[in-house]
Design a protein around this nucleic acid. Structure first.
Lengths: 329, 329
DNA sequence: CTGTTAGCGCTTTCAG
DNA sequence: CTGAAAGCGCTAACAG
């Protein structure tokens, strides 16, 4: 790997001058410029980003912290982020927490060390320590999916999306609607969606049996188990079931089919996420499209803006959702 | 951001000494070490990776070049790679070509500039220029999914997997088996799978009508179109259809259902990829599991080995595949 | 056991 | 228009 000095020597100029043509800064006479260009061309020289970063404090790298790398949500999000970022010459440094909250903290630190120009954090959870860590981070940072006051956020409208789903059931004449959620420590998916469900039910004067509300852990298997519990323990069997993710819904469908229920005749069902499988289960699953790719793009735009203008006031963007009504209701 | 010098001053020692405790190299007396530790603790100091990289020429970053970021294959692959890499303290710098071959070249360059310790390239295609670029890259590089002589490869056994699928059809009594492929410039998916199909047919003395072989472009839509062409243009309608990817197969299924064909009674069908939707289409799709996550792991291991031992001879790993026989045949 | 010195490759004043 | 010099933050001989 050649260095700027060698290029300078070969072109009989100083490093400074080479640097100038490299960065299009300051004046360089036409022939000197051409001479240098030629040498650069011939040697295939490219300046070291590290040396550059060391001086300029800029890296053109954005750290992206994900809870789980191989989910549809994550990959759509990253696709959206990359779409905007690559256009602006930034690259993504991945950080996968694998749902380990400790790692969120670690990675924020690590990304600081690597001097990334910005961080996009997809949080599943907000706790005191995380907020502290975020607050003492001087790098522009934006959080997707959970609300953190001090920084910019891109949020899904979990509360209203949940209400919309329940409202749909009610329109279709359902009154006994049960719910498969996740732990409420996940504010967005766990708490807000549940609140939406409860509020919508309450507003319509519908009662909710305790056993109608079950919890899973984001996978198909736990959706199956939750559904089983609802069916086995409820004195009054519901006619509709709202699962907070598509995977949970698919698990529920699996259980229902196994027990001979007809969907949607015996039991209507809906999820959230618009995952690809939601189209292919039988019957196709009613769900909510959160447009993760759009979220990724929005986050990336916000971040770049914040990097380039260097301004601080946090912005909050709440994204639209689309209710996808399909044959499962 | 504090620097090593400030820490040194605060602890009344030289930078060298601080560096020593940071890297656990050389001797440092117990109390000096503790004094330094304390200062580091209090200030929350972390050494700059850039300055470090500039000296050591190591970055603990691996560049991963992907053809498309938001596919199941990619995300599984990345999950596998990350699994191994993170364990060894490496991070992933993402490079998404979006199927633009030009970008593969660009990114190899860019990753060099960023001095990544190694590169994992998921290639869809091998052309002269790419091989050249790869050869003049001094950074350890491994290619997944396509064979490139000069470097280590992790390969799927496309040829035998294809034969296995066709062989399955033949066992089930099919003789008129048609094929939906992709362009053969993609050696692995396009060429080898087709060759496997042809060879297996030939070996069993089965003939193939020209119209039985159609091409798509990796999406569901084009699978639909290809299937349509086969049905509409063949004088002798086949009884089985082998699609080189699950998505193509799903497209084909959509067409067949639309036209009232019963699967597998009127038409058997199989794909490759073991994508999640393959389980949920109706009927569940027979497919081949390539275990992308294992491929990612294998690639990461190979790469780390090559980085740490600094040895050159390229290794070739061909992964196993598993035929997943489901109701579509 | 600890410090001095040099230098990684680049950009950026400041003088010509 | 061009160059000299300083320095970004760190590590690695080499001397003590």
């Amino acid at each position: 790997m050649a260095t700027i000095k060698e290029i300078a020597d070969m072109a009989n100029v100083s490093r400074t001058t080479v640097s100038r043509v490299l960065n299009d800064s300051g004046y360089v006479s036409k022939d000197v410029r051409q001479r240098i260009m030629k040498v650069i061309e011939e040697t295939g020289y490219v300046p070291s980003e590290h040396a550059k970063s060391l001086r300029t404090k800029k890296t053109k790298v954005i750290g992206v912290i994900l809870p789980k790398i191989s989910t549809e949500t994550s990959s759509r999000l990253v696709a959206g982020i990359d779409d905007i970022l690559s256009e602006k010459g930034y690259q993504i440094l991945l950080a996968n927490t694998n749902l380990d909250q400790e790692k969120e903290l670690e990675f924020i630190k690590l990304l600081k060390v690597r001097q990334v120009d910005g961080i996009i954090l997809t949080a599943t959870n907000v706790n005191e320590r995380l907020v502290q860590q975020i607050n003492k981070t001087d790098i522009p940072l934006i959080v997707i999916g959970q609300e953190v006051d001090s920084v910019s956020n891109v949020l899904y409208d979990d509360y209203h999306a949940a209400r919309a789903v329940v409202s749909l059931f009610i329109q279709k004449g359902h009154e006994a609607i049960s719910f498969i959620g996740v732990d409420e420590s996940d504010v967005a998916v766990g708490h807000l969606r549940k609140k939406g469900y409860i509020d919508e039910m309450t507003q319509h004067g519908l009662t909710v049996e305790d056993t109608w509300i079950q919890k899973g852990i984001f996978d198909i298997e736990s959706g199956y188990e939750a559904m089983k519990k609802i069916i086995e323990t409820s004195t009054h069997t519901p006619t509709a079931i709202f699962a907070v993710t598509d995977r949970l819904a698919v698990g529920a469908i699996n259980y229902l089919k196994e027990k001979g229920y007809q969907i949607p005749e015996d039991m209507a069902i809906a999820g959230i996420g618009a995952s690809e499988i939601s189209q292919y289960v039988n019957p196709p699953l009613t769900t909510v499209d959160y447009q993760n790719e759009a979220a990724g793009k929005a986050a990336a735009k916000l971040l770049i803006e914040s990097i380039e203008t260097n301004k601080k006031e946090p912005k909050k963007i709440t994204l639209d959702y689309r209710l996808l009504v399909r044959d499962s209701v």
